[in-house]
Nucleic acid binder design. Structure first.
Lengths: 154, 154
DNA sequence: TTTAGATCGTCTGTTCTGCAGATCATCTTG
DNA sequence: CAAGATGATCTGCAGAACAGACGATCTAAA
């Protein structure tokens, strides 16, 4: 978690807001195995993409060995389960349990609350403006971590 | 370096933009000992705050033991030097060398270029709007890392 | 003044995370 | 069927960060 330059206007403000958001989000995700990344894995499992762990790892920008024990933890808490892929006996298919679905719904709601909390100082109009501007920047940002399907579709 | 939720609009866009900025900034700061944090230390040394390493560490949000070898590296490259504090023989005062000043000037310029690069997709008006909105959020963000003097003045 | 406690910077040892590489089972291609 | 690629896992290692201890020094109370 490299902190950016203090001096630069953009870097400073961007970093401060981002860290504020991450800090609050981490509290929300504290109980979830794997933290933020565990949430991402859970999300993917729920969306039922059913892709291999390896492509999933690449999509999330983590190492394949990390993915192994990430899923281990998630499975140990009963939020997710590994099922054999009927078409490839090497691979495992990831699916969320009922508890996983419930947990994900709760967590997502809590994250939206965090987002609202961060945006408190802005008026509704300003919030929309900010979203638009950030989206415009984000889409021009060429980040494989956030643009996964462009590099490796399921 | 915890990545936030993919789903949340704000979290996703904010994270993508921030990572894009950090990634570019890291390239600029790659040659500097200590990377981004080394730059922050160098900045503080130049601003001549002359506070103790400990308060400096707290301000930058790093451990005191980390601060030790951070400064070690910076000093080894001749960008910074530790001088004994005349008023307290336990403490050391941090000051930047001439080389440190030059390096800092170059690096700061490069970082501004990165910032401009990130903001490319926006019109000048939009850039100013974004800065304003982010600043408004940042100042309401209670982040000790970015609001150091509030918690521990020099 | 003397003494007890706090503080500064450093050092040591430990823990944790993530990566490279090897391994085994399986799929695919020739 | 043989040879190579691929999926998931495991092992070992390297780097970073933390807790704790340490010597030196400052500060405040007796």
């Amino acid at each position: 978690m490299p902190t950016p330059a203090v001096e630069s206007d953009l870097g400073w403000a961007l970093g401060a807001v981002f860290r504020g958001y991450v800090r609050a989000a981490e509290q929300v995700l504290a109980g979830l195995p794997g933290g933020p990344r565990g949430y991402q894995v859970l999300t993917t499992a729920i969306e039922g993409e059913s892709c291999s762990q390896q492509t999933l790892a690449h999509r999330l920008g983590v190492d394949k060995t990390v993915m192994t024990y990430l899923i281990d933890d998630l499975e140990r808490t009963g939020l997710v389960e590994r099922r054999p892929d009927p078409t490839d006996r090497r691979a495992r298919l990831l699916s969320a349990t009922d508890a996983g679905h419930r947990r994900h719904t709760e967590t997502t709601a809590a994250l939206h609350a965090v987002e609202a909390e961060v945006l408190t100082p802005l008026t509704p109009t300003e919030r929309e403006t900010l979203r638009d501007l950030l989206r415009k920047l984000a889409t021009h940002q060429g980040d494989p971590t956030t643009h996964p399907c462009a590099t490796n579709p399921c």
